[in-house]
Computed example of a mutant assay.
Amino acid sequence: MASVTLTVGAAATAATLAIAAALIGGAATASQRLASGADAAALAAADVASGAVASAGSPCEVAAAVAAASGTRLDDCRFDGFVAIVQVSAAYAGITAVARSRAGPPEVAADDG
């Protein structure tokens, strides 16, 4: 009887650990997808705003489309000059996560000359 209890306990522990590992792995994947979605949306918005990419839509409309294509939702899109600042979100296991990104032309270093 004790060996059956031990076997059931070991199986339950192994199943719990496997589920936990799957959730952690899924969360890591979701985090990377979220960060990539934010980066891609910011880059797309900055490219449209600078004229590097022609588009019939506004920079933020393009950013929203790119975010949606990556499985995220655009929550905020604004500009500081030609620098696009975006925030995207996505849900995983009932929890909503947020990522922010910014993209634009490179900063010009001040001339110390």
Results as ranks from 00 to 15, higher is better:
44 A>W: 04
11 A>S: 14
26 G>V: 14
42 A>V: 02
48 V>H: 04
92 Y>G: 09
79 F>P: 03
55 S>A: 15
79 F>T: 03
104 G>P: 05
24 I>A: 12
4 V>F: 05
35 A>W: 06
23 L>I: 07
107 E>G: 08
50 S>R: 13
36 S>M: 13
59 P>V: 09
91 A>T: 14
111 D>I: 01
36 S>C: 07
93 A>C: 05
84 A>V: 01
6 L>F: 04
62 V>K: 00
30 A>W: 06
106 P>G: 05
60 C>V: 10
60 C>Q: 08
72 T>I: 12
99 A>S: 15
15 A>D: 02
26 G>Y: 15
18 A>D: 01
67 A>N: 04
27 A>G: 14
3 S>I: 14
13 T>Q: 07
39 D>Q: 04
100 R>V: 11
105 P>A: 14
17 L>C: 11
48 V>W: 03
10 A>D: 08
96 T>I: 10
41 A>E: 05
4 V>G: 00
15 A>W: 02
93 A>F: 07
23 L>N: 07
17 L>M: 13
92 Y>L: 15
14 A>V: 15
19 I>M: 15
14 A>P: 10
107 E>A: 12
28 A>Y: 03
63 A>N: 05
63 A>L: 08
99 A>P: 13
102 R>I: 05
86 V>I: 06
37 G>A: 06
66 V>P: 00
7 T>D: 00
67 A>V: 04
104 G>H: 05
14 A>I: 13
78 R>F: 12
72 T>G: 10
33 R>N: 14
24 I>D: 03
77 C>N: 02
72 T>P: 08
99 A>N: 10
40 A>Q: 01
82 F>W: 10
36 S>Y: 12
103 A>F: 01
63 A>V: 07
112 D>C: 12
72 T>L: 11
2 A>S: 13
51 G>M: 02
85 I>M: 08
55 S>F: 02
54 A>F: 01
93 A>E: 12
105 P>T: 07
82 F>Q: 14
44 A>M: 10
99 A>F: 13
25 G>P: 02
22 A>D: 07
38 A>S: 07
59 P>L: 06
84 A>H: 00
73 R>D: 00
